[in-house]
Nucleic acid binder design. Structure first.
Length: 827
RNA sequence: GCCGGAGUGGCGGAAUGGGCAGACGCACGGGACUUAAAAUCCCGAGGGCCGCGAGGCCCGUGCCGGUUCGACUCCGGCCUCCGGCACCA
C-alpha cells in the first residue's frame, strides 16, 4: 500500500542532474554580492582524512548548500594534497608507481564524494602532484631564496629512521615521528629551511585579529611560537676574544649568576677544547659526543639527569665583576635562545639542581622565603646559604616587570647587553630525502656553488625512470638523467639537488590557486584574490592546528610582502570538526575511526543499504560537530526511519486535493512552520545541524499530526511540507529534491530561496507560565502571551494546588518575568 | 608545572543576556497490527519515597562553599578526564 523510500535510484538521478547543471560552479560574481569560499583538502595518498568518517565533507556540503539557498555566491573547490610518503611506501611495497597509486586514490575518493552527493566545483580542481601545480611551489621557493627566506644550513636535524628522511620540528611528537611513530634521532645534515622565525611576531600578533578561530587553536599556536621577553647579556670569557651571549627572561637576577652553562653544540666549545690541556680536551670531546648520541626523546625527557662538565675556563659576571666557572650542560639546548645560559641557582629550580649536584655557588639576590626556589633546601646546599648577596632587589625595586626593565636599562647603559625577545619557534625544515614530492629547484656546481634553477627552466619535473626499493635512500639520487645537469651560471657539469619539499609547502598556498588553477602565467591572480579571499569558512581537523595552519599563515604573509596578495590572514573563520570514534573490535576500546586501526565503516556499503541521505543525516545528527562522536549502527537506523516518515508524509500530502496555492497566514501549523524555520536557520548558522535535525523531526511529527487531525487546509499542509523539504535539503539533498519536484516545487530545492520566518508567527501565542513558591516549582499556568502579573495572580488564586502552598502564609514579595515565571516569596 | 577545553539519565546529547533540567535520537519495557516474525505505528520511563488509585512529596547537572526570590548557567576553592606546551633559560 505505502510506497517505501528506496535509496539508490533517487540519489543517482539527482546526482546526474546536479552534474549536468554544474551547480557548484560559480566563477565570476557581480560586485556587491557576498562571497563564500569554503575550503577543504584531503590527502588521497595519505591516511589523515577519509571520506565516510571524516565528517568535514558532509558538513562542508551542507554548509555550501545552505549558503547557496541563502543567495550567497559560493565557491566550493577541491584540492588534493597528493604528494607524500604513503604513496612512496606503497610503491616500495607493491612496485606500483606513486603516481598511479595516487591517481587511483583520487579517483576512488572522487567517487565516494560524489556518492555522498557532495557538490564540488570540479573546474577548480587541483592536485599538488601535477607539474603545473608544483612548478609554482618551485617558483615560490626561488622567490623566497632571493629574499633570504629560503636557505641551506648544516644543523642537527630530526631524522626518522623509518621514513628515512628528516622531519620538521612540528612533525616530531613526543620524540617520535608524527607519521610512522618511529623514535626520532638527531643527525647533522645540510638541509633547506624556510625562515619562518622572521615572521614569529607577525604570526603571533595576527592571532588577535582572528575572532572566529577557537581559543584552543590560537593557544596552541601561541604556545608553539613561544614568545618570551628578556635580555641578551654578554659574558666575557678568559681566552676568548668574543664574549658569550646569554639569553635570560630574568636579567634582574644577574647578581645571582654563579656559573655559565653552554650547550655542548655551542660553537665556542671547540675553541675552548682546543685551548685546554690534553686531558681536559679529551674530557670535553667525550662529553660533547655523549650528549649528541642521546636521542631527542632522552634529551627532552623531564627529570632526566642534569649532566655537566667544568671546562676549566672562567667568565666574568658583569654585575659583580667576579669570576664564575664556565660549564657544559646537557640541559642547555643549542637551538633555543643563544645556546648558552647564565646559571642562577637561587632563583631557578633547574639551575639549582645543577648547582647542588656539582656543588656550585648559590647566591640569592632577593628574599627567597616566597621566592623561586625552596629556601630551606637552598640554605642547606649553598655555601652562602640564606645570606642576601645584595640587600633588596634590583636597585631597591621589588622583583617584577619594573625590576627587569631597570636591569635592562642598566645593561644597555653599561654596554653589557640589551633587551631581547626570544621565540621557541624554529625555522621550517622543508628538505625531504624522498622521491614523491616537489623537487627543490637548485643545482650544485663545483665552481659556482649552489645555484638557483632559472625560472625559464621550471618546472623541474620528477623523473619517471626511478626504481623503488627498500632501504637505499632517496630514489632520486639513482636517476642519472635527473641528477646530472649543467650549471646555469658557468655551463659546466653540475649535480641537481635531490631533496624534495615537505608536503606542507603544497598545502600552504593552494587556496589562492583554486581561483584559477590553470593560470600558466602567474602563481595567483591578485584581483581574484581581492575579490574572494580570505576564505570565509575553513573546515578541517584539529590535527592541523599547528602544522598546516601556521605554515599557511606564514606563506600568506610572504606573498603579501611580495606584493601578490593584500591580506595576511587567509582563513576568516576556522571550524575544527571533531573525529568520529567507534568501538574497535580488536582492542575493545573506543578509538578514532581510521583505516590503520581497522574500525572503519564502509561508506559504500552504508550508502548501498540506506542511501546517501541516511548517511549524511546520521553523520550530522550524531552530535555537535566540533566534538568527538561515537558511531553506532543502531543510530543509522534511526536516521533511516526518519527519512521514511518524511517520505510517508510527502506521499499523503501528494494525495491531497489540489486547491489554492497561497500559504496560510496563521493557524497552528503555520506557527509551527515559522518556529521551525527560525530554529533551523539559527542552528545551521552555528553548524549545529544535530539540533536542526531534532527541530525537523518535531516538525515532521507536527505535520503528520495535523494531517491525522484534519482541520488544516491542503494549501497549509503543502506549504508546511515544502518548507520541511527546503530546511532538510542541506542535510538530505536527494529525497528532498525528489519530493520537491513531485509536490510541485519549481526547479531545484537547491536553487529555491532559503525560507524566511515571520518573527510574529514564529513566536507562540500561548505560553506556559511557571509558578514558583520560594523558588520551587509548584504549578504551571497556561496563559496568553503578554499576560500581566495581575492576570497571573488572578489565576493563581483560582488554582487549588498552588493556593495550598500559599494559604496561611504572608506573601513578602513577588517576582514576575513576563511569559516565563511568577515566583511568590512567602513566610 | 603552565595554557586551553570538558564533566548532565543505560547511551549520544538538549537547555547557559540565571527562570519548567533531560528536547531529539538510540537502547529498553508495554501495547496495536500479524497465524507468527520482521517492518511500522502508539504509549512509558532521572532516582527515591508515600498512595489501591487519580496523584503527591523529597533528592538530582563532578565535589565543597558563596551570590540570588531563583543557579546546569554567575563567583571562590577543589576533583577527574581530554588536548596542547614544557630541562625554553
Amino acid at each position: 500500500m505505502t510506497e517505501k523510500y528506496v535509496p539508490g535510484p533517487v540519489e543517482e538521478k539527482w546526482q546526474r542532474l546536479w552534474a549536468e547543471k554544474r551547480v557548484a560552479y560559480v566563477d565570476t560574481a557581480a560586485p556587491g554580492n557576498e562571497y563564500y569560499l569554503l575550503n577543504m583538502y584531503p590527502y588521497p595518498s595519505g591516511s589523515r582524512l577519509h571520506v565516510g568518517h571524516g565528517r568535514n565533507y558532509i558538513l562542508g556540503d551542507a554548509l555550501y548548500r545552505r549558503e547557496r539557498m541563502a543567495g550567497r555566491k559560493a565557491l566550493n573547490p577541491m584540492g588534493w594534497d597528493a604528494f607524500g610518503l604513503p604513496a612512496e611506501n606503497a610503491a616500495i611495497q607493491s612496485g606500483v608507481h606513486p603516481r598511479e597509486y595516487t591517481l587511483a586514490n583520487i579517483a576512488r575518493m572522487k567517487e565516494q564524494l560524489n556518492a555522498l552527493g557532495c557538490l564540488y566545483d570540479w573546474s577548480k580542481e587541483l592536485s599538488s602532484c601535477d607539474p603545473e601545480y608544483y612548478r609554482w611551489n618551485q617558483w615560490l621557493f626561488l622567490r623566497m631564496w632571493e629574499r633570504g627566506l629560503a636557505y641551506r644550513k648544516t644543523a642537527p636535524v630530526n631524522w626518522c629512521p623509518g621514513c628515512r628522511t628528516v622531519l620538521a620540528n612540528e612533525q616530531v611528537v613526543d620524540g617520535r615521528c608524527e607519521r610512522s611513530d618511529d623514535l626520532v634521532e638527531i643527525r647533522d645534515l645540510t638541509q633547506w629551511f624556510f625562515r619562518v622565525t622572521d615572521y614569529a611576531e607577525r604570526l603571533l600578533e595576527g592571532l588577535d585579529r582572528l575572532p572566529h578561530w577557537s581559543d584552543r587553536v590560537k593557544t596552541m599556536q601561541r604556545n608553539w611560537i613561544g614568545r618570551s621577553d628578556g635580555a641578551e647579556i654578554l659574558f666575557r670569557v678568559d681566552g676568548l676574544t668574543e664574549p658569550v651571549r646569554v639569553f635570560t627572561t630574568r636579567p634582574d637576577t644577574l647578581y645571582g649568576a654563579t656559573f655559565l652553562a653552554l650547550a655542548p653544540e655551542h660553537p665556542v666549545v671547540a675553541q675552548l677544547a682546543g685551548r685546554s690541556e690534553a686531558t681536559r680536551q679529551r674530557e670535553i670531546e667525550d662529553f660533547v659526543e655523549r650528549v649528541r648520541r642521546e636521542s631527542r626523546l632522552e634529551r627532552e625527557a623531564e627529570g632526566g639527569a642534569k649532566e655537566g662538565l667544568d671546562t676549566g675556563f672562567r667568565a666574568v659576571n658583569p654585575a659583580t665583576g667576579e669570576p664564575i666557572p664556565v660549564w657544559l650542560a646537557n640541559f642547555v639546548l643549542p637551538d633555543y635562545g643563544t645556546g648558552a645560559i647564565m646559571g642562577v641557582p637561587a632563583h631557578d629550580q633547574r639551575d639549582f639542581e645543577f648547582a647542588r649536584r656539582y656543588r656550585l655557588d648559590v647566591r640569592p639576590v632577593y628574599r627567597t622565603d616566597e621566592g623561586d626556589v625552596d629556601g630551606a633546601a637552598m640554605t642547606e646546599a649553598a655555601p652562602h646559604g640564606g645570606v642576601l648577596y645584595r640587600s633588596g632587589d634590583w636597585d631597591g625595586t621589588p622583583s617584577g616587570p619594573e625590576a627587569i626593565r631597570k636591569a635592562i636599562a642598566w645593561l644597555e647603559e653599561q654596554g653589557f647587553g640589551k633587551g631581547k625577545v626570544g621565540y621557541r619557534l624554529r625555522d621550517w625544515l622543508i628538505s625531504r630525502q624522498r622521491y614523491w614530492g616537489t623537487p627543490i629547484p637548485a643545482i650544485h656546481c663545483p665552481s659556482c656553488g649552489v645555484v638557483p634553477v632559472p625560472d625559464a627552466d621550471l618546472p623541474v619535473r620528477l623523473p619517471e625512470d626511478v626504481e623503488f626499493r627498500g632501504a637505499e635512500g632517496n630514489p632520486l639520487e639513482k636517476s642519472p638523467a635527473f641528477v646530472q645537469t649543467r650549471c646555469p651560471k658557468c655551463g659546466g657539469p653540475a649535480r641537481r639537488e635531490t631533496d624534495t619539499m615537505d608536503t606542507f609547502v603544497d598545502s600552504s598556498w593552494y587556496y589562492f590557486r583554486f581561483l584559477d588553477p590553470r593560470d600558466a602565467e602567474k602563481i595567483v591572480d591578485t584581483a581574484r584574490v581581492d575579490r574572494w579571499l580570505p576564505v570565509d569558512q575553513y573546515i578541517g581537523g584539529i590535527e592541523h592546528a599547528i602544522l598546516h595552519l601556521l605554515y599557511a599563515r606564514f606563506v600568506t604573509r610572504v606573498l603579501k610582502d611580495m606584493g601578490l596578495v593584500n591580506l595576511e590572514e587567509p582563513f576568516e573563520r576556522l571550524f575544527n570538526q571533531g573525529m568520529i570514534t567507534r568501538l574497535n573490535p580488536a582492542t575493545g576500546k573506543i578509538e578514532k575511526m581510521s583505516k590503520s586501526r581497522g574500525n572503519t565503516v564502509s561508506p559504500d556499503e552504508l550508502i548501498a543499504r540506506f542511501g546517501a541521505d541516511t548517511v549524511r543525516l546520521y553523520t550530522l545528527f550524531i552530535g555537535p560537530p566540533e566534538k568527538e562522536s561515537e558511531w553506532s549502527e543502531e543510530g543509522v537506523l534511526g536516521a533511516y526511519r526518519f527519512l521514511n516518515r518524511v517520505n510517508e508524509l510527502c506521499l499523503r500530502v501528494e494525495a491531497l486535493p489540489a486547491e489554492g496555492t497561497d500559504g496560510p497566514r496563521d493557524g497552528a501549523l503555520a506557527r509551527l512552520t515559522h518556529q521551525t524555520i527560525r530554529r533551523v536557520t539559527e542552528d545551521a548558522a552555528e553548524f549545529h545541524f544535530h539540533t536542526a535535525v531534532a527541530a525537523l523531526m518535531e516538525f515532521q511529527r507536527g505535520i503528520t499530526e495535523a494531517l491525522d487531525a484534519g482541520g488544516e487546509t491542503p494549501a497549509a499542509l503543502r506549504f508546511a511540507a515544502r518548507t520541511l523539504l527546503q530546511l532538510l535539503h542541506p542535510i538530505a539533498p536527494h529525497i528532498t529534491e525528489e519530493w520537491w519536484q513531485r509536490l510541485g516545487g519549481r526547479g531545484f530545492v537547491l536553487e529555491s530561496a532559503w525560507p524566511l520566518y515571520d518573527p510574529e508567527l514564529a513566536t507562540p501565542t500561548a505560553v506556559t507560565l511557571v509558578v514558583q513558591v520560594n523558588g520551587k516549582v509548584r504549578g504551571k499556568l497556561s496563559m496568553a502571551r503578554g499576560a500581566t502579573e495581575s492576570e497571573a495572580m488572578a489565576q493563581v488564586r483560582a488554582d487549588e494546588r498552588i493556593r495550598s502552598w500559599v494559604d496561611g502564609k504572608e506573601i513578602m514579595r513577588t517576582v514576575f518575568v513576563p511569559d516565563r515565571l511568577l515566583n511568590l516569596v512567602v513566610r
